[in-house]
């Protein structure tokens, strides 16, 4: 490896849910039902980079973010953080590692405990990791981070319900940042917010990243947001990354038909009605029984017989640009 060893390296990560049967199920002879949320996902995130993770609901993007942090225990595969194997850490080591890897959640309401004051919520990491020598010091640190994310330090003793959605999201950001982490999973942090508030939070996240040298895994279903703030982007479909590469390349000349249809579906203020729409028919197949061959073939406008049986291998279609489609080389869109 060269000097630029990536901060995060994910190799063949698999997460299956369910599968474990209760005693009653076993007595009744019910088979185990498992949902394959992640099916061998591999990627890296370089230091200081933002990797955008995009996909529709149920594609496994939120699970991926959580599996990387071991909030959901991966079924198989490996995650390394700065060279250390996260998947092999003991509970005590994992707890220490949590200082460095944090998460910002989607729902500004559900992500803050309604019975705790802001000082308690934001100060929790200090307490858990003994990062403040005294209560005074903890309060000062909380006040400082509050001001940094654009909240008044005077509001330290308020409860979450006394803040608006955008302010609550800032509280969640302050909580994630107070232990000086290096890597943050942003799980749809602006999806629940109004347009004008969304822009405020995006601006804040970009500033913080630059100031603190953070690395982001930015999960979103919003292509405009991903396009605006990511360096590279990974497109997920049914638990797999179908296309990945530098954001300009993937969003301007997508090579996977799923990415193409996703992009063409987004209404655009700049050029309404100009794009040729790649129409997708039907809904996402059930992750309990994913289709054989290429998983996208049931909705793909270009599917041929081969797609129903052969799983496409990931191929390189350009500088750092990969796609998992039998026709990736030919699919150059105008």
């Amino acid at each position: 490896m060269t000097v630029s060893e990536p901060l995060i390296r994910v190799e063949s990560l698999v997460k299956h849910y369910g599968g474990r049967r209760s005693l009653m199920d076993r007595l009744a002879g019910r088979p185990a039902i498992s949902i394959r949320a992640l099916n061998g996902v591999s990627f890296t995130v370089a230091r200081g980079e933002t990797l955008g993770l995009i996909g529709e609901s149920g594609c496994g993007k939120s699970t991926l973010g959580r599996a990387v942090l071991r909030l959901h225990e991966p079924t198989a595969g490996r995650v390394t953080f700065d060279g250390a194997d996260v998947t092999a850490l003991s509970p005590a080591e994992l707890k220490a590692m949590r200082r460095d890897m944090q998460i910002i959640f989607q729902d500004p309401y559900a992500s803050l405990n309604p019975r705790r004051t802001v000082a308690e919520i934001v100060g929790l990491p200090l307490k858990l990791h003994n990062l403040a020598k005294s209560g005074r010091e903890a309060r000062d640190k909380v006040a400082a981070i509050m001001e940094r994310v654009g909240l008044k330090a005077a509001h330290l003793d308020r409860y979450p319900h006394q803040f608006s959605g955008g302010q609550r999201q800032r509280i969640g950001i302050a909580r994630a940042l107070i232990s000086n982490p290096r890597f943050i999973v942003c799980d749809e942090p602006v999806s629940a917010l109004d347009v004008s508030i969304q822009a405020q939070i995006i601006k804040l996240l970009i500033e913080l990243k630059r100031e603190l040298g953070l690395t982001y895994l930015f999960v979103s279903h919003d292509i405009s947001v991903i396009g605006y703030l990511s360096d590279r982007v990974a497109v997920m479909y049914l638990g797999e990354i179908v296309e990945m590469g530098p954001v300009e390349r993937v969003l301007q000349s997508p090579r996977h038909p799923y990415t193409q249809s996703l992009l063409s579906a987004v209404p655009d203020v700049d050029s309404p009605g100009l794009r040729k729409r790649v129409k997708l028919t039907g809904d996402l197949p059930s992750p309990q029984a994913p289709p054989p061959g290429c998983k996208f073939h049931t909705r793909c406008p270009l599917a041929v017989e081969r797609c129903r049986t052969d799983v496409p291998v990931v191929r390189t279609v350009g500088e750092g640009h990969t796609a998992a489609c039998h026709f990736a080389e030919e699919l150059v869109q105008g």
Binding site: I202, V225, Y228, Q252
Partner: peptide, 14 residues
């Protein structure tokens, strides 16, 4: 306030 690919690198003005 709408983020766009075409605005990459330019500061967003909320």
């Amino acid at each position: 306030s709408i983020p766009r690919l075409s605005l990459r690198g330019q500061p967003i003005e909320p």
